[in-house]
């Protein structure tokens, strides 16, 4: 195989055993190279754009930051890098995190290797793993908040406009161009939105994700 056809992967996870296991598994697939790994969000933000991997596998929550922020920062610099959010929480929360991150999908920490390897290959090829119907649900909910998610009420108009663009998959740079804001300003807005929505605190995130993602069929 030529190096062109090979898939370059970066791993961000704060658990040593997980990084080791992932590396072993992915490298055993034959067409995947792990070009770097770290347990720190800050280090990852610095190193990923320089390494230009095809896929960055990012743990959603890290001691020094969140995989969501890392993914957005990296993709703002280089949109050709595809993000995959890795999480041991549940699908609902992971789906929301992936959408917020502008990632191509999410992976649950489940061991079935076929799924993991297949996911990395599909994302590297430019496919999204997120079900477009579920994507619609999230965007729809953000555009039309109701009483089920009072957290959205706490956002300013500007923040809600930015959140909508985030949900549409735009990078921070694209949002900045669209709204005539500096990229850095957009990044600050996104951090503030995540904070307001409680996504920085582990315990609240799942509940919020459920509320946001859930369509209410009752009047």
């Amino acid at each position: 195989m030529t190096s062109e056809a090979r898939i370059r992967v970066f791993i961000l996870d704060d658990h040593d055993v997980v990084r080791r296991g992932l590396r072993a598994l992915l490298e055993a697939a034959g067409d995947i190279d792990v070009v770097g790994e770290t347990g720190s969000a800050v280090t990852a933000t610095d190193r990923i754009p320089a390494l230009k991997p095809d896929v960055a596998i990012l743990d959603g929550r890290l001691p020094d930051g969140s995989g969501i922020d890392v993914c957005r920062a990296v993709r703002s610099v280089d949109p050709s890098i595809n993000g995959l959010i890795l999480t041991s929480y549940d699908d609902d929360e992971a789906l929301f995190a992936a959408i917020m991150a502008g990632a191509s999908g999410y992976l649950l920490k489940e061991a079935k290797s076929a799924d993991l390897v297949a996911a990395v290959r599909r994302v590297a090829a430019g496919h999204s793993l997120i079900d477009p119907r579920l994507m619609d649900v999230v965007v729809d909910r953000i555009r039309h908040p109701d009483r089920a998610a009072p957290e959205l009420e706490a956002l300013t108009d500007q923040e809600r406009r930015i959140l909508e663009l985030v949900a549409d998959g735009l990078t921070n740079r694209q949002i900045g161009e669209r709204m005539f804001l500096a990229e850095k300003t957009v990044k600050n807005y996104v951090s503030s939105i995540l904070a307001k929505l409680g996504l920085e605190r582990r315990t609240q995130a799942a509940v919020l994700a459920t509320k946001l993602l859930r369509r209410s069929s009752k009047g």
Binding site: G21, A24, L25, A28, S88, Y89, K109, E110, A111, S113
Partner: peptide, 28 residues
């Protein structure tokens, strides 16, 4: 309860996940 959930998440799942991946490496 939150602490137990955190422990299960931060320790147990990570180890099971890692063990599963190592096993599959061996299976190959």
């Amino acid at each position: 309860r939150a602490r137990i959930a955190r422990d299960l998440h931060d320790q147990v799942i990570q180890q099971l996940f890692a063990a599963g991946m190592s096993l599959q490496g061996a299976a190959a």
